[in-house]
Design a protein around this nucleic acid. Structure first.
Length: 339
DNA sequence: CGTTTATGACCCCTTACTTCA
DNA sequence: CCTGAAGTAAGGGGTCATAAA
């Protein structure tokens, strides 16, 4: 099951949008796709060492043509994080001294961090080591950042000691701003991670792979939530537009009915104004003889309430846009015109 | 070859904790 | 200092796809 709403650059599935200029693509420049299953997953995956269920070929093809940029709340501007190096983008992680990127050599790399999917072996979740905000070399290594990180380390340490006292306390740490920013940047690159990327990120950020995984899960959930909110807003506006359109059409219909009752003679349109091919039931706007066609008047054909039975009409008739009878026409001609 | 089982990845819901006004 | 709301890390259950038995 797929439901897609598109605006902006994509095709226009909703014709009413064309008729309602106030609801233009400029106003609502996004597309929405609601697909069954896991179609929302990112289609691109750099590499998949273990072809699992998240393999690219299994991903749905229903990614919205245009997605909202749901990253406005990125805690760190690109200018700052652009210096960071994503582990999967380079093989020589941390081998570029002075490059401004993450220098893993400076991190307290733990033994076994390479092959440890179960990062629990590395450190406890709240240990000062695992949550230690490392020096990313961001912003010229400002002293403020350093102070923040030191304070954060202090907090993490105190929390860890508190947790040590009470083993029942739920383990929870707060990622440092730098860690969050780096994760955010990597999320912009890939909103899903393959195991290799996850491990590399975990190693680089000195987090457990599980933490990276959870962060990405939660981040995707936040993105989805934001998207849902926007979708709801859009649908709400669509509903309002349709309601308004419906109201307008109802009013127009009332006016036409009033006009018809007040001027019954003039409302009698030629029977040949609208025709329908009996075989394909297409409506033809060209004129035909009444003997070979049937009118489009659906409800009250031939009755007093009907709209399309008459033989003549004045030039000032509201329906003057419709072509008057111009002689006879065969059914085949009518069909051709309708086609 | 079809079925069962194990595994991994993900989503969803929820909880517990932190931060802030 | 207290409190409620908001944000978020993490736990747990369920689903699905895949590989192996």
């Amino acid at each position: 099951m797929e439901l897609a709403l598109s605006l902006g650059d994509s095709s226009k599935p909703f014709s009413f949008l064309d008729k309602t200029p106030k609801l233009s693509g400029k106003d609502l420049g996004f597309c929405m796709a609601v697909g069954g299953g896991r179609s929302s997953r990112s289609p691109e995956k750099e590499e998949e060492p273990t072809p699992g269920r998240d393999g690219g070929e299994r991903r749905g093809s229903s990614d919205p043509p245009v997605q909202l940029d749901l990253l406005p709340f990125s805690p760190v501007p690109r200018r700052q994080t652009s210096q960071l190096r994503f582990p999967w983008l380079t093989d020589n992680i941390g081998t570029e001294p002075g490059s401004g990127g993450l220098d893993v050599n400076r991190l307290p790399v733990l033994a076994g961090a390479d092959d440890a999917e179960d990062g629990a072996a590395l450190s406890s979740p709240n240990s000062a080591v695992s949550s230690f905000p490392m020096d990313f070399g961001i912003g010229n290594g400002s002293s403020r950042g350093k102070r923040d990180m030191e304070a954060e380390t202090e907090r993490a340490s105190s929390r860890a000691s508190d947790d040590d006292e009470n083993g029942l306390t739920r383990k929870k740490l707060r990622l440092s701003k730098e860690q969050s920013a780096f994760l955010e940047e990597s999320f912009k690159e890939h909103n899903t991670l393959n195991p290799k990327q996850k491990l590399a990120l975990a190693k680089q950020l000195n987090l457990r792979p599980r933490q990276v995984e959870v962060w990405f899960q939660n981040r995707r959930a936040r993105t989805k939530l934001k998207q849902t909110e926007v979708d709801c807003e859009y649908l709400k506006r669509c509903c309002e537009t349709l309601t308004e359109e419906n109201r307008r059409l109802q009013k127009e219909l009332q006016e036409l009915r009033a006009l018809k009752t007040s001027q019954p003679f003039y409302m009698q349109l030629p029977a040949t104004t609208l025709t329908m091919c009996p075989s394909c039931e297409r409506v033809a706007t060209t004129t035909t003889t009444s003997a070979t066609t049937k009118t489009v008047n659906t409800g009250n054909h031939g009755t007093a309430n009907g709209v399309a039975l008459p033989l003549n009409r004045p030039k000032l008739h509201p329906f003057s846009a419709l072509k008057p009878a111009q002689g006879s026409q065969t059914q085949a001609q009518a069909h051709q015109a309708a086609s």
